[in-house]
Amino acid sequence: MDDAFQAASQPALQPAPLTVADATDRFDDLLPSQSIHFAVPPLRTLTWRVNASATLRIQSAQVWVTRARSPYDHWLQPGETLRLERGERIWLSTEAALPARVSITSAWQPPFAGMRRCRERLAAWLALLTLRRSREA
């Protein structure tokens, strides 16, 4: 009887808590992405304004990349990548005899994401304007 009483009075075993590694493993699935593939013609310069943070990947031929507001130019070989930030402007050119194939990959954005961002900027601007006027009064 004492054994049965002791077994009943002991707390039930709790499962081990999840570790940080267990929690992040569940979220390591790749999110949807969108890629734009294009060719950079020889001896011509293309310009691109990045709408969302993206990765520039060179597929074939060496490409010269110039970034606005950066004192450095980049010569990228096939297989190399360069991280681009939203709003950044880049210029691409190649001195190869054939067009250079390039891709820009970014996270997929749902439809009307730009409208949502525009609404958020407008709300922030109105809040700032209201705050300035209240300080002036």
Rank of each mutant, 00 (worst) to 15 (best):
M1F: 08
M1C: 10
D2K: 12
Q6S: 10
Q6G: 00
S9P: 00
Q10D: 04
P11Y: 00
P11H: 06
P11L: 03
P15A: 12
P15E: 10
P17K: 06
L18S: 12
T19R: 07
T19H: 00
T19D: 00
A23R: 05
R26N: 04
F27D: 06
F27Y: 13
D28Y: 04
P32M: 01
Q34R: 09
Q34V: 11
S35W: 00
I36P: 00
A39M: 10
L43G: 02
L46I: 00
L46G: 03
W48L: 11
W48T: 03
V50E: 11
N51Q: 15
A54V: 01
L56Y: 05
L56A: 07
Q59F: 01
A61Y: 11
Q62I: 13
W64F: 15
W64Y: 15
W64V: 13
V65I: 14
T66Y: 08
T66H: 15
T66A: 15
A68Q: 15
Y72C: 02
Y72L: 15
D73F: 15
D73W: 14
D73V: 12
H74D: 13
H74V: 04
W75P: 04
P78M: 01
T81I: 05
T81V: 10
L82I: 03
R83S: 11
R83M: 05
L84H: 04
E85W: 12
G87Y: 09
E88W: 09
E88T: 08
R89A: 15
R89N: 10
R89W: 13
I90C: 03
W91N: 05
S93N: 13
T94V: 02
E95A: 13
E95Q: 14
L98H: 03
P99M: 04
A100C: 02
V102Y: 01
S103I: 00
A107C: 06
W108T: 08
P111H: 08
P111S: 04
A113Y: 04
G114C: 02
M115R: 08
R116P: 00
R117C: 04
C118G: 08
R119V: 10
R119M: 12
R119C: 11
R121H: 13
L122Y: 08
A123S: 12
A123Q: 13
W125S: 14
W125I: 10
L126M: 07
A127L: 08
L128M: 06
L128C: 01
L128S: 11
L129I: 06
R133I: 02
R133Y: 02
S134E: 12
S134Q: 15
S134T: 14
R135V: 03
E136S: 12
